[in-house]
Design a protein around this nucleic acid. Sequence first.
DNA 1: TTCAGCCTTTACGTTAACGTAAAGCTGGGT
DNA 2: ACCCAGCTTTACGTTAACGTAAAGGCTGAA
Lengths: 132, 132
Amino acid sequence: MTNNEQYSIGELSKYFDITARSIRFYEEQGLLAPERQGQSRIYHLKDKVRLKLILRGKRLGFSLAEIKTLFELYDTNPNSAAQLETMLALTDQKRAVLNQQLNDIQTLMNELDDVESRCKEELIELQKGNHL
Amino acid sequence: MTNNEQYSIGELSKYFDITARSIRFYEEQGLLAPERQGQSRIYHLKDKVRLKLILRGKRLGFSLAEIKTLFELYDTNPNSAAQLETMLALTDQKRAVLNQQLNDIQTLMNELDDVESRCKEELIELQKGNHL
DNA sequence: TTCAGCCTTTACGTTAACGTAAAGCTGGGT
DNA sequence: ACCCAGCTTTACGTTAACGTAAAGGCTGAA
Protein backbone atom coordinates (compact mmCIF):
# COMPACT_ATOMS: atom_id res chain seq x y z
CA MET A 1 0.00 0.00 0.00
CA THR A 2 2.97 2.34 -0.36
CA ASN A 3 1.52 4.29 -3.29
CA ASN A 4 2.22 2.98 -6.73
CA GLU A 5 1.56 6.02 -8.84
CA GLN A 6 3.68 6.37 -11.93
CA TYR A 7 4.46 9.48 -13.88
CA SER A 8 5.95 10.17 -17.28
CA ILE A 9 8.43 12.96 -17.69
CA GLY A 10 5.78 14.99 -19.45
CA GLU A 11 3.33 14.61 -16.58
CA LEU A 12 5.90 15.69 -14.05
CA SER A 13 7.00 18.65 -16.12
CA LYS A 14 3.42 19.84 -16.41
CA TYR A 15 2.76 19.24 -12.74
CA PHE A 16 5.73 21.34 -11.65
CA ASP A 17 5.55 23.72 -14.59
CA ILE A 18 9.11 23.11 -15.70
CA THR A 19 10.54 21.70 -18.92
CA ALA A 20 11.38 18.05 -19.48
CA ARG A 21 14.87 19.26 -20.32
CA SER A 22 15.27 20.48 -16.74
CA ILE A 23 14.19 17.16 -15.30
CA ARG A 24 16.62 15.28 -17.52
CA PHE A 25 19.30 17.75 -16.55
CA TYR A 26 18.72 17.11 -12.86
CA GLU A 27 19.10 13.42 -13.55
CA GLU A 28 22.27 14.08 -15.51
CA GLN A 29 23.61 15.92 -12.46
CA GLY A 30 22.85 12.98 -10.23
CA LEU A 31 19.84 14.46 -8.43
CA LEU A 32 17.33 11.98 -9.78
CA ALA A 33 17.52 8.31 -10.78
CA PRO A 34 14.18 7.26 -12.24
CA GLU A 35 13.33 3.72 -13.24
CA ARG A 36 13.38 2.77 -16.90
CA GLN A 37 10.85 0.84 -18.91
CA GLY A 38 12.52 0.28 -22.21
CA GLN A 39 13.98 3.63 -23.10
CA SER A 40 11.42 5.70 -21.25
CA ARG A 41 11.78 7.09 -17.77
CA ILE A 42 9.23 6.12 -15.14
CA TYR A 43 8.91 8.30 -12.07
CA HIS A 44 7.40 7.25 -8.75
CA LEU A 45 6.31 9.18 -5.71
CA LYS A 46 9.80 9.37 -4.24
CA ASP A 47 11.05 10.98 -7.45
CA LYS A 48 8.22 13.46 -7.30
CA VAL A 49 9.13 14.34 -3.73
CA ARG A 50 12.75 14.74 -4.72
CA LEU A 51 11.82 17.08 -7.52
CA LYS A 52 9.76 19.12 -5.12
CA LEU A 53 12.77 19.40 -2.83
CA ILE A 54 15.02 20.37 -5.71
CA LEU A 55 12.70 23.18 -6.74
CA ARG A 56 12.35 24.44 -3.20
CA GLY A 57 16.10 24.40 -2.81
CA LYS A 58 16.45 26.40 -5.98
CA ARG A 59 13.90 28.95 -4.85
CA LEU A 60 16.03 29.38 -1.76
CA GLY A 61 19.10 30.05 -3.84
CA PHE A 62 20.87 26.72 -3.47
CA SER A 63 22.87 25.47 -6.44
CA LEU A 64 22.15 22.04 -7.86
CA ALA A 65 25.54 20.92 -6.56
CA GLU A 66 24.63 22.03 -3.04
CA ILE A 67 21.27 20.32 -3.27
CA LYS A 68 23.01 17.16 -4.38
CA THR A 69 25.39 17.11 -1.42
CA LEU A 70 22.45 17.72 0.89
CA PHE A 71 20.68 14.75 -0.66
CA GLU A 72 23.77 12.61 -0.27
CA LEU A 73 24.13 13.60 3.37
CA TYR A 74 20.50 12.81 3.93
CA ASP A 75 20.71 9.51 2.05
CA THR A 76 23.82 8.06 3.66
CA ASN A 77 22.50 6.54 6.82
CA PRO A 78 24.14 8.61 9.51
CA ASN A 79 25.83 6.05 11.69
CA SER A 80 29.32 7.36 12.36
CA ALA A 81 29.86 10.20 14.81
CA ALA A 82 31.92 12.05 12.24
CA GLN A 83 29.04 11.97 9.76
CA LEU A 84 26.68 13.29 12.36
CA GLU A 85 29.01 16.11 13.32
CA THR A 86 29.35 17.05 9.67
CA MET A 87 25.61 17.07 9.26
CA LEU A 88 25.15 19.25 12.33
CA ALA A 89 27.75 21.70 11.11
CA LEU A 90 26.05 21.93 7.73
CA THR A 91 22.60 22.44 9.15
CA ASP A 92 23.92 25.22 11.38
CA GLN A 93 25.61 26.84 8.44
CA LYS A 94 22.47 26.69 6.31
CA ARG A 95 20.45 27.97 9.22
CA ALA A 96 22.65 31.05 9.39
CA VAL A 97 22.11 31.77 5.72
CA LEU A 98 18.37 31.32 6.09
CA ASN A 99 18.28 33.65 9.06
CA GLN A 100 20.13 36.26 7.04
CA GLN A 101 17.52 35.86 4.32
CA LEU A 102 14.74 36.21 6.84
CA ASN A 103 16.26 39.49 7.98
CA ASP A 104 16.62 40.72 4.44
CA ILE A 105 13.06 39.79 3.61
CA GLN A 106 11.74 41.49 6.73
CA THR A 107 13.64 44.66 5.93
CA LEU A 108 12.44 44.62 2.36
CA MET A 109 8.85 43.95 3.39
CA ASN A 110 8.93 47.00 5.63
CA GLU A 111 10.26 49.13 2.83
CA LEU A 112 7.60 47.81 0.51
CA ASP A 113 5.00 48.76 3.09
CA ASP A 114 6.41 52.28 3.19
CA VAL A 115 6.43 52.64 -0.56
CA GLU A 116 2.98 51.20 -0.88
CA SER A 117 1.36 53.46 1.67
CA ARG A 118 3.04 56.52 0.19
CA CYS A 119 1.80 55.48 -3.23
CA LYS A 120 -1.74 55.07 -1.98
CA GLU A 121 -1.68 58.47 -0.30
CA GLU A 122 -0.55 60.08 -3.49
CA LEU A 123 -3.26 58.32 -5.43
CA ILE A 124 -5.84 59.73 -3.05
CA GLU A 125 -4.40 63.19 -3.56
CA LEU A 126 -4.69 62.75 -7.31
CA GLN A 127 -8.30 61.63 -6.91
CA LYS A 128 -9.12 64.79 -4.96
CA GLY A 129 -7.59 66.90 -7.70
CA ASN A 130 -9.75 65.21 -10.31
CA HIS A 131 -12.88 66.43 -8.59
CA LEU A 132 -12.19 70.04 -9.49
CA MET B 1 25.98 68.30 7.79
CA THR B 2 24.76 65.66 5.35
CA ASN B 3 27.76 63.41 5.79
CA ASN B 4 30.71 63.98 3.53
CA GLU B 5 32.54 60.71 3.82
CA GLN B 6 34.37 59.57 0.74
CA TYR B 7 35.44 56.09 -0.17
CA SER B 8 37.79 54.63 -2.72
CA ILE B 9 36.77 51.52 -4.61
CA GLY B 10 39.26 49.53 -2.55
CA GLU B 11 37.76 50.73 0.71
CA LEU B 12 34.26 49.82 -0.37
CA SER B 13 35.30 46.42 -1.63
CA LYS B 14 36.95 45.64 1.70
CA TYR B 15 33.99 46.97 3.62
CA PHE B 16 31.49 44.78 1.78
CA ASP B 17 33.92 41.94 1.24
CA ILE B 18 33.48 41.91 -2.53
CA THR B 19 35.95 42.53 -5.36
CA ALA B 20 36.53 45.88 -7.02
CA ARG B 21 35.64 44.14 -10.25
CA SER B 22 32.13 43.54 -8.97
CA ILE B 23 31.69 47.18 -8.03
CA ARG B 24 32.86 48.32 -11.46
CA PHE B 25 30.55 45.76 -13.01
CA TYR B 26 27.57 47.13 -11.12
CA GLU B 27 28.46 50.58 -12.44
CA GLU B 28 28.78 49.17 -15.95
CA GLN B 29 25.27 47.78 -15.58
CA GLY B 30 23.94 51.15 -14.54
CA LEU B 31 23.43 50.39 -10.86
CA LEU B 32 26.02 52.87 -9.60
CA ALA B 33 27.24 56.23 -10.84
CA PRO B 34 30.10 57.37 -8.62
CA GLU B 35 31.75 60.75 -8.91
CA ARG B 36 35.13 61.00 -10.59
CA GLN B 37 38.24 62.82 -9.50
CA GLY B 38 40.54 62.58 -12.47
CA GLN B 39 40.36 58.97 -13.48
CA SER B 40 39.55 57.59 -10.05
CA ARG B 41 36.10 56.83 -8.74
CA ILE B 42 34.94 58.54 -5.57
CA TYR B 43 32.07 57.01 -3.64
CA HIS B 44 29.85 58.84 -1.17
CA LEU B 45 27.36 57.64 1.41
CA LYS B 46 24.54 57.31 -1.11
CA ASP B 47 26.69 55.01 -3.23
CA LYS B 48 27.47 52.94 -0.16
CA VAL B 49 23.77 52.66 0.61
CA ARG B 50 23.08 51.64 -2.96
CA LEU B 51 25.71 48.95 -2.80
CA LYS B 52 24.18 47.65 0.39
CA LEU B 53 20.82 47.45 -1.35
CA ILE B 54 22.35 45.70 -4.33
CA LEU B 55 23.91 43.04 -2.14
CA ARG B 56 20.73 42.52 -0.20
CA GLY B 57 18.80 42.18 -3.42
CA LYS B 58 21.26 39.61 -4.62
CA ARG B 59 21.01 37.62 -1.41
CA LEU B 60 17.28 37.51 -2.02
CA GLY B 61 17.77 36.13 -5.48
CA PHE B 62 17.08 39.23 -7.54
CA SER B 63 19.05 39.65 -10.75
CA LEU B 64 21.04 42.82 -11.31
CA ALA B 65 18.57 43.75 -14.03
CA GLU B 66 15.68 43.43 -11.61
CA ILE B 67 17.50 45.45 -9.00
CA LYS B 68 18.13 48.12 -11.60
CA THR B 69 14.47 48.43 -12.53
CA LEU B 70 13.57 48.61 -8.86
CA PHE B 71 16.07 51.44 -8.45
CA GLU B 72 14.66 53.23 -11.47
CA LEU B 73 11.14 52.87 -10.14
CA TYR B 74 12.27 54.16 -6.81
CA ASP B 75 14.24 57.03 -8.36
CA THR B 76 11.64 58.35 -10.78
CA ASN B 77 9.54 60.57 -8.60
CA PRO B 78 6.22 58.85 -8.66
CA ASN B 79 3.86 61.56 -9.80
CA SER B 80 1.64 60.01 -12.45
CA ALA B 81 -1.14 57.65 -11.47
CA ALA B 82 0.07 55.13 -14.01
CA GLN B 83 3.52 55.08 -12.42
CA LEU B 84 2.00 54.57 -9.02
CA GLU B 85 -0.16 51.70 -10.21
CA THR B 86 2.87 50.08 -11.80
CA MET B 87 4.80 50.43 -8.60
CA LEU B 88 1.99 48.93 -6.57
CA ALA B 89 1.68 46.01 -8.94
CA LEU B 90 5.40 45.36 -8.71
CA THR B 91 5.52 45.54 -4.95
CA ASP B 92 2.64 43.09 -4.74
CA GLN B 93 4.39 40.76 -7.13
CA LYS B 94 7.60 40.88 -5.16
CA ARG B 95 5.70 40.42 -1.95
CA ALA B 96 4.25 37.18 -3.31
CA VAL B 97 7.71 35.89 -4.14
CA LEU B 98 8.99 36.84 -0.71
CA ASN B 99 6.08 35.12 0.98
CA GLN B 100 6.82 31.98 -0.99
CA GLN B 101 10.40 32.19 0.19
CA LEU B 102 9.26 32.63 3.76
CA ASN B 103 7.21 29.46 3.45
CA ASP B 104 10.12 27.58 1.94
CA ILE B 105 12.45 28.76 4.66
CA GLN B 106 9.99 27.84 7.38
CA THR B 107 9.54 24.36 5.96
CA LEU B 108 13.25 23.89 5.61
CA MET B 109 13.92 25.16 9.12
CA ASN B 110 11.51 22.60 10.52
CA GLU B 111 13.20 19.85 8.60
CA LEU B 112 16.58 21.03 9.82
CA ASP B 113 15.23 20.89 13.35
CA ASP B 114 14.13 17.31 12.78
CA VAL B 115 17.44 16.25 11.33
CA GLU B 116 19.35 18.01 14.05
CA SER B 117 17.46 16.46 16.92
CA ARG B 118 17.71 13.02 15.39
CA CYS B 119 21.45 13.54 14.97
CA LYS B 120 21.84 14.59 18.58
CA GLU B 121 19.90 11.58 19.82
CA GLU B 122 22.08 9.28 17.82
CA LEU B 123 25.17 10.96 19.19
CA ILE B 124 23.93 10.35 22.70
CA GLU B 125 23.37 6.70 21.86
CA LEU B 126 26.92 6.48 20.58
CA GLN B 127 28.19 8.06 23.79
CA LYS B 128 26.37 5.45 25.87
CA GLY B 129 27.95 2.71 23.81
CA ASN B 130 31.40 4.11 24.48
CA HIS B 131 30.96 3.63 28.21
CA LEU B 132 31.03 -0.15 27.93
C1' DT C 1 0.14 2.21 -43.16
C1' DT C 2 0.60 6.54 -42.03
C1' DC C 3 0.33 9.97 -38.86
C1' DA C 4 0.51 12.51 -34.43
C1' DG C 5 2.16 12.78 -30.07
C1' DC C 6 5.26 11.56 -26.74
C1' DC C 7 9.57 9.96 -25.71
C1' DT C 8 14.78 9.48 -26.53
C1' DT C 9 19.99 11.04 -27.15
C1' DT C 10 23.57 14.17 -28.78
C1' DA C 11 25.39 18.40 -29.09
C1' DC C 12 26.02 23.13 -29.70
C1' DG C 13 24.17 27.88 -27.98
C1' DT C 14 23.01 31.25 -24.34
C1' DT C 15 22.81 34.32 -20.27
C1' DA C 16 24.29 36.26 -15.87
C1' DA C 17 27.80 37.67 -13.04
C1' DC C 18 31.62 38.08 -12.57
C1' DG C 19 37.26 36.15 -12.81
C1' DT C 20 41.53 37.05 -14.58
C1' DA C 21 45.18 38.66 -17.19
C1' DA C 22 47.49 42.44 -19.62
C1' DA C 23 49.07 46.89 -19.87
C1' DG C 24 49.31 51.36 -18.34
C1' DC C 25 48.54 55.97 -15.31
C1' DT C 26 49.53 58.27 -10.78
C1' DG C 27 50.48 60.07 -6.23
C1' DG C 28 53.31 59.45 -2.22
C1' DG C 29 57.45 57.89 0.11
C1' DT C 30 62.60 57.06 0.12
C1' DA D 1 64.71 59.51 -9.84
C1' DC D 2 62.54 55.47 -8.78
C1' DC D 3 59.37 52.35 -7.01
C1' DC D 4 55.19 50.53 -5.36
C1' DA D 5 50.44 50.33 -4.12
C1' DG D 6 46.24 51.27 -5.86
C1' DC D 7 43.73 52.86 -9.44
C1' DT D 8 42.35 52.56 -14.53
C1' DT D 9 40.54 50.30 -19.17
C1' DT D 10 40.15 46.47 -22.42
C1' DA D 11 39.14 42.07 -23.40
C1' DC D 12 38.89 37.30 -23.31
C1' DG D 13 37.59 33.21 -20.09
C1' DT D 14 34.41 30.71 -16.94
C1' DT D 15 30.46 28.46 -14.56
C1' DA D 16 25.65 27.21 -13.84
C1' DA D 17 21.45 25.97 -15.59
C1' DC D 18 19.33 25.24 -18.76
C1' DG D 19 17.43 26.44 -24.22
C1' DT D 20 17.15 24.80 -28.63
C1' DA D 21 17.65 22.32 -32.57
C1' DA D 22 18.32 17.88 -34.98
C1' DA D 23 17.35 13.24 -35.76
C1' DG D 24 15.20 9.38 -34.56
C1' DG D 25 12.30 5.34 -31.78
C1' DC D 26 7.57 3.75 -30.00
C1' DT D 27 2.64 3.42 -29.75
C1' DG D 28 -2.13 4.01 -30.48
C1' DA D 29 -5.83 5.91 -33.49
C1' DA D 30 -7.71 6.61 -38.16
